[in-house]
Amino acid sequence: MEAIFQIIVSGLTLGAMYALGSVGLALTYGTMRMFNMAHGVFMAIGAYGAFFAADVLGLPILLALLGGIVLGGVVGALLHLLVVRFMLDTKDFEINILVATAGVGILLQDLLLKLFGAYPFRQPVQIEGTVELGGVVIPVQSLAILFVGFTLISAIAWGLTRTSFGLSIRATAMNRDAARLMGVNATATYLQVLIIAGMLAGAAGVMISSISTLSPDMGTNPAIRAFVICVVAGLGSVGGAGITALALGLIEAAVQYYIGARFGLPLMLALVVIVLVRRPAGLFGREEVVRS
């Protein structure tokens, strides 16, 4: 019983982090068919931003968290203004943008390495201590991650479905020309989407680094999980990515508990392949997949 409770708590914590990491990625692909290979580095940038704000500038942790999130958004905006903007509507956009963002990723990762070095700093933006719930000892930080994750994801879900701004993003994703005919400025929408995705990645980075350490390549592993989550959910399905993230978090927690941490990712990938053989567009995807 305690074991199950333990698995559920750590599974939900993992799931909340995965959701933060993958929802922005799914939103970007869904809106503009752009898959951001630099997403993992965005996470690292958010984490270092919060670290810098708390450790060097001495800001309180809530402000530092906010700083990390904002920095992620800024990087997202820069990516749009300096790179993506020039590539929209070009031939083979889907592949070229993968290559370009991979280049941006290695560039930014190198920048982080030059600025902060490879030393695995501890993330100061976290809450120490543990609480006991139902006979299980839970780190307070796990609860904080759950709280931040669910707050931000709910805010995004609310914004996308209940505001005119969110409506315009979804409209652009479904039919760009029709959205423009309604007066939506698609280029501005793309910029906004990349800012949101960057902010979510920044938040994910702060959370992930709070339970491990900081390093320039800290985003690689969570980004690959986010890729996998988006692929399973069906690329571009935002709600699907959130649900899949939670489910995979729970599954991974169980696998870690019973089999060992080493096999979390392999089992996840095996699951992905099985899902995709049955449903080539992913669990929640509806778009056409070129079949032979």
Binding site: F227, L265, V272, V289
Partner: peptide, 20 residues
């Protein structure tokens, strides 16, 4: 396992498999 899928899926899956 992957090549039936669309371009972006192939890229991400082959990347994830190497990483695994």
């Amino acid at each position: 396992a992957c090549l039936r899928l669309a371009a972006a899926y192939v890229a991400l899956l082959t990347f994830a498999i190497s990483y695994m």
